[in-house]
Nucleic acid binder design. Structure first.
Length: 163
DNA sequence: CCACGGTGGTAGA
DNA sequence: TCTACCACCGTGG
């Protein structure tokens, strides 16, 4: 089930499963058709849409979301899920390196694999993969495009990353 | 600055 | 299985 999420940064597209929010797509003209934009959201989904919208707006304003919708991370492997859960612990304004994440999940040598897991993150922004940097404060990559990573970091107070 | 080797996890064949 | 990717990281020119 899909639903558009309107924010100051554009219209995101959320996808929900039975379990909760399972995907979040960055605003892109091709992703949200006019039809989807105006379509009625099913009543059963409205509470989750509301929570998703509130949480997204909070992050985009540099604040800590008071409440998340349930997150369905079942699309990922065990390894990926442990990486994603670890990222959820990083507060806005803070950053960690890929290496620190690897150590935190007990696989210090799996640094490179952590990068792969970040790239596979189905719920960017809310699962804050943008707060993961390469060693030495270098940006690394970002699945949604580096501009987004820079913008998100700038919102959270890292002026040096502004495009 | 660049090149390289050691890495672990994933997707595809 | 085997293979070829990688949003890494340290070391060494």
């Amino acid at each position: 089930m899909k639903a558009p999420i309107a924010t100051s940064e554009g219209i995101f597209l959320a996808e929900f499963s039975e379990e909760g929010l399972c995907f979040l797509h960055f605003p892109k003209a091709s992703e949200v058709s006019a039809k989807e934009e105006t379509a009625e959201v099913p009543a059963t989904l409205r509470p989750w849409v509301k929570l998703t919208t509130a949480a997204l707006k909070a992050v985009l304003a540099g604040r800590v979301p008071t409440e998340f919708p349930p997150l369905d991370l079942s699309a990922g492997t065990k390894f990926q899920q442990s990486v994603w859960r670890q990222m959820l612990k990083i507060a806005p304004g803070k950053t960690k390196s890929y290496g620190e994440i690897a150590k935190a999940i007990g696989k210090p040598a799996a640094v490179r694999a952590v990068g792969g897991a970040c790239g596979a993150n189905p719920i960017p922004v809310l699962v804050p993969c943008h707060r993961i940097l390469a060693a030495g404060g270098k940006l690394g990559g970002f699945s949604g495009g580096l501009d987004w990573k820079r913008r998100l970091l700038a919102i959270e107070g890292h002026a040096q990353y502004q495009a």
